[in-house]
Simulated scan of single mutants.
Amino acid sequence: MTNKQDEAPGRRDIRTLDSGALRALAHPVRVRLYDILSQQGPQTASSLAAMTGESSGSTSYHLRALAKHDLIREIPERGTARERWWERPTGGVSFPGPDTMRTPAGRAATQVVMGEFLDRRHDQLMRFVGTTLRDELDPWAEKALITSATVSLTVEQLGEVNARIQRVIDDVVDEYRIAPGAEPTPSRRIVSLRAEAFPITTESD
Rank of each mutant, 00 (worst) to 15 (best):
I75E: 07
I178Y: 03
E7A: 08
H69Q: 11
V168E: 14
R188V: 15
Y34L: 13
R102A: 11
A197S: 10
L25D: 11
R88M: 15
H62E: 10
S94E: 13
E196N: 08
T44Y: 03
E183I: 13
I178L: 06
E156R: 10
Y176K: 09
M51F: 10
G53N: 12
A195M: 12
P28M: 04
L133T: 12
L37T: 01
N3T: 12
R167M: 11
R84I: 11
L158P: 01
E74K: 14
S94M: 11
I75G: 10
Q166K: 12
F95G: 01
D35R: 13
G181H: 06
S19T: 14
T110V: 02
A149M: 07
I146Y: 05
E142K: 07
M1H: 08
M51G: 13
D174E: 15
L193M: 13
Q43T: 03
L158E: 01
R32V: 03
T147V: 07
R64K: 15
S192T: 14
L133M: 10
D119H: 07
E83K: 07
E83V: 14
S55Q: 10
L71K: 04
P76W: 04
T100E: 11
W85E: 02
D6T: 00
Q39V: 11
L145H: 06
E7M: 07
V31C: 12
H69M: 05
S47Y: 06
V29L: 11
T80L: 04
L133N: 05
Q111N: 03
R12K: 09
D174P: 03
S148Y: 05
T44V: 04
E116N: 05
A45L: 06
P199K: 12
R73F: 00
S60N: 13
G20S: 12
S192F: 12
R107I: 07
G106H: 04
H62W: 00
D13G: 02
P184N: 08
